[in-house]
Simulated assay, not measured.
Amino acid sequence: MIDFLSGLGHWNWFIAGVLLMALETLIPGVHFLWFGLSAVIVGILLASLGDVFTLPWQFVVFAVISVATVFWVRRFANAQGVESAEKDLNQRGAQYVGRIVVVEDDISGGRGRVRVGDTLWPASGADVPKGTRVRITGANGTVFTVEPA
């Protein structure tokens, strides 16, 4: 088996590249794609230059190209630089700041509940009786900070 694989030469890298890219479809996350691309690049280098590198040097070239492609992709595909039109998309409570709502359970001792649409939310603020209209001034997790409207 080893004689067969060593006889394939640069085709081993093409096969490894295709297998790694296929593995990317089974385990998504854009990790194996760059290693597959690196294996194909090593295969192209060996095909164009002839099999001039010994197997250990082929692995070194593969490792260097793999690291280079990972850093190259991170540089151009930085998810941190993406701006969202909806700033509070993952902060549901913050989306309601400024809205006027009705107190459902008396706010006494600084704690109570308000109705927002068809949902009851915990609220904190000045003591007010049930039925009072209050303005949401902030959100701490799922607890609204309210003040009389």
Rank of each mutant, 00 (worst) to 15 (best):
A79M: 08
N90H: 15
L55D: 08
V73R: 11
F53H: 04
A68W: 04
E83Y: 11
F71E: 13
F62N: 00
V61H: 05
R92N: 10
L89T: 09
I65E: 02
G93R: 09
S66C: 00
R74M: 10
V64Q: 04
E86T: 09
V52Q: 05
F76W: 12
F71M: 11
G93S: 10
V82K: 14
V73Q: 08
V73H: 12
N78G: 01
L55P: 08
F71V: 15
V67W: 06
L89C: 06
T69V: 12
R74K: 12
A79P: 10
A94V: 07
V64A: 14
E86W: 01
V64P: 01
A94S: 14
A85E: 03
V60T: 05
E83V: 14
Q58W: 03
N90G: 06
E83H: 13
V67S: 06
W57G: 01
F62Q: 01
V64G: 00
N90D: 14
T69P: 03
N78R: 06
W57Y: 10
E83C: 05
A79L: 13
V70C: 04
T54I: 05
A68R: 04
A85T: 08
T54A: 08
A85D: 15
I65R: 07
N78Y: 04
Q91S: 11
D51F: 09
R74H: 06
S84F: 07
N90I: 06
Q58Y: 07
A68F: 14
W72K: 00
S66R: 02
P56Y: 10
V70R: 01
T54S: 12
S66N: 04
G50R: 05
L49N: 09
A79C: 02
V64K: 01
I65K: 05
F59L: 09
D51M: 10
V61E: 05
A77M: 11
Q91F: 08
T69H: 09
Q91L: 15
W57S: 06
W72Q: 06
F59P: 02
V61M: 10
V60W: 04
P56T: 03
R92G: 12
G81S: 12
I65P: 02
D88F: 05
A68K: 02
D51N: 11
Q91N: 12
D88Q: 09
T54N: 13
A77I: 03
T54K: 11
A68H: 04
E86C: 06
A68S: 11
E83I: 11
G93P: 01
N90T: 14
L49P: 00
G93I: 08
R92D: 07
Q91K: 14
D88Y: 07
D51Y: 09
D51K: 02
A63F: 12
P56A: 08
E83T: 13
F76H: 15
E86K: 11
Q58K: 03
A85G: 13
L55H: 04
S66F: 01
A77R: 05
E83D: 13
Q91E: 15
F59Q: 02
S84Q: 00
A85R: 10
V52Y: 03
W72M: 11
A63E: 03
T69R: 04
K87G: 07
E83N: 00
G93D: 00
P56R: 10
V70L: 14
A63G: 12
T69K: 04
R75T: 10
W57H: 02
V67A: 15
Q91T: 12
A63D: 04
L49R: 05
F76Q: 08
V52T: 06
V61S: 13
K87N: 10
Q80D: 14
E83W: 01
D51A: 12
Q58I: 01
F71R: 11
